[in-house]
Design a protein around this nucleic acid. Structure first.
Lengths: 148, 148
DNA sequence: CAATAAAGTGAGATTGATTCTCAATAAAGG
DNA sequence: CCTTTATTGAGAATCAATCTCACTTTATTG
């Protein structure tokens, strides 16, 4: 049994909830992805594999995965919420281009200790790191200058 | 003339746009606030002062203020976009409690140079700093433990 | 193995912030 | 003033996310 299955089961059992078939399919799909995803992407990935789960169930399951600490709601783009699994994935910064939508990740190694120190100082329990920088990537910045 | 008025006027004129009465009222209201605000808060603040501006105009004006560099879209909470003015306000981290909604700010002094260095390395033009940590403040964390 | 209770699901309706449309108004420059 | 161009307000439209509720699974108990 994979670690994320064990952790999710433990989380659910502690609250008298069940690891049902739809929840298991969503869990597996989430961990098969190695990038940010939104509900629509997850929905279509499941359909492609003939694993139909309703959108409603996906919307209901994602908060459970967040609360169990397996995924986080890490960014919002184009009016949609995006998630990523965090088990075994180090936290990182997101660089989001407002023009082309590209998301680049960079390391947080230098910064994370400082953030965690502040967190423990104020006794804040971090659940989601949403460390996003929005603006223009160099390609889109060059294009904007050309067209002026 | 205040600096933010001068800057906004310059921005608008460069694009053949006008500093109209509604836009001026919004600008003044934004800089009279010293905290995050959303459209609804701005709308009501204007009404209280008998300065009626339609929501549509507020929704249209905020992106102009963002693009002119006077404000930034810094966080999303309870399904709403929140902004803050940044002229003369140092960037900071937001600590957002998912339970009580409180937003605490802490300094970014130690971290900002590192971020800006990465930005220049990849030639990324930062427009908004959305550096948010979501989770539980100590009060709500204590309450959760009590009720179990 | 029923039978019952409790949790979960799917489909579609609803919500609510944000965006869009378009007729009416305001600003700028002769 | 007069014309052109930008802007506004009101309400309609959009669309991600949430909610409702009848039906289905899953777990439990005798």
């Amino acid at each position: 049994m994979k670690e994320y299955e064990r952790l999710f089961t433990e989380y659910l059992e502690a609250r008298s909830q069940r690891l049902t078939q739809p929840r298991r399919l969503i869990l597996e799909a989430v961990f098969s992805l190695h990038d940010h995803f939104d509900v629509e992407q997850l929905y279509h990935r499941l359909r492609i594999h003939n694993e139909e789960v309703s959108r409603a169930t996906i919307y209901r399951t994602l908060p459970l995965l967040v609360e169990s600490g397996l995924i986080q709601h890490s960014l919002r783009q184009a009016d949609r919420d995006f998630y990523e699994h965090i088990l075994g994935h180090p936290q990182h910064l997101h660089w989001i281009c407002r023009k082309c939508g590209t998301v680049v990740e960079t390391s947080l190694d230098m910064v994370l200790p400082l953030i965690n120190k502040v967190a423990s100082q104020q006794r804040f329990q971090i659940e989601d790191y949403q460390l996003n920088l929005r603006g223009l990537c160099w390609k889109c910045a060059d294009n904007e200058n050309e067209n002026q």
